[in-house]
């Protein structure tokens, strides 16, 4: 991808972050901010280290997008941060939740759903090129606990089929003044990677 295309995508993601933060603020009932940490093309072998989690397991709520934009959007978080957010969302004291129960998992799945849909809608509206009859269809989110590198490895596979470098967008979250160790990754697949230059040519910054 060219620097101009990456810059355009960055603008799109910043717009997406704003909309996702607004949606999350309503869902949480608190000020929620999203910071676009990085949007970059990295060599395949470096891609697995974007979450800086090394050998540690993380939780993942994954959404697969099909249509004009296809790929994976994944909310990744460690147990402590995830349970803290789940406690807040379910109106329970953090110390009440020591493991992933049904309610906590459901709260995080809904969080992933809200975040991913807000981002994908923002991207879709901005990239809605003429003839994009394919629309955009996100899958229901799925919860899993995995080694961070294993999960990212699988996520980038859709691009690795065609490219030696992979495009990853990575965001971080703040609730009021506290950072949460949660990241939202967007990894378009090879089909979208190939179509992006064309889709971006129709995009004008507003």
């Amino acid at each position: 991808m060219t620097e101009q295309e990456i810059s355009q995508l960055q603008t799109l993601f910043q717009q997406g972050s704003k909309k996702a933060a607004e949606a999350m603020s309503v869902w949480c009932g608190r000020a929620f901010r999203i910071h676009l940490d990085a949007l970059r093309c990295v060599p395949l072998e470096e891609a697995t280290q974007v979450l800086h989690a090394g050998d540690d397991p993380l939780c993942f709520c994954s959404v697969a997008a099909e249509g004009v934009i296809s790929g994976q959007m994944v909310l990744a978080f460690d147990d402590v941060s995830g349970l803290k957010l789940a406690a807040l969302l379910t109106d329970r004291a953090a110390e009440q939740i020591v493991a992933w129960d049904e309610l906590s998992t459901a709260a995080m799945l809904e969080t992933a759903n809200i975040l991913c849909c807000a981002y994908l809608n923002a991207l879709f509206e901005a990239l809605d090129a003429p003839g994009s009859a394919a629309g955009l269809m996100p899958s229901p989110p799925r919860f899993s606990r995995e080694y961070a590198e294993s999960a990212v490895e699988f996520l980038v596979m859709g691009q690795a089929l065609e490219f030696d470098q992979v495009l990853i967008a990575c965001t971080r979250f703040m609730i009021e003044d506290s950072f949460l160790n949660c990241s939202l990754l967007f990894v378009p697949d090879s089909q979208t990677m190939a179509a992006l230059p064309g889709l971006l040519s129709a995009f004008t910054e507003s």
């Binding site: 993942f60 994976q72 294993s150 999960a151 859709g158 089929l161 697949d189 089909q191």
Partner: peptide, 13 residues
Amino acid sequence: GASMFQTAQTMNI
């Protein structure tokens, strides 16, 4: 050789 998340493109890789 796992298939970890739902995705049509990489399902069988």
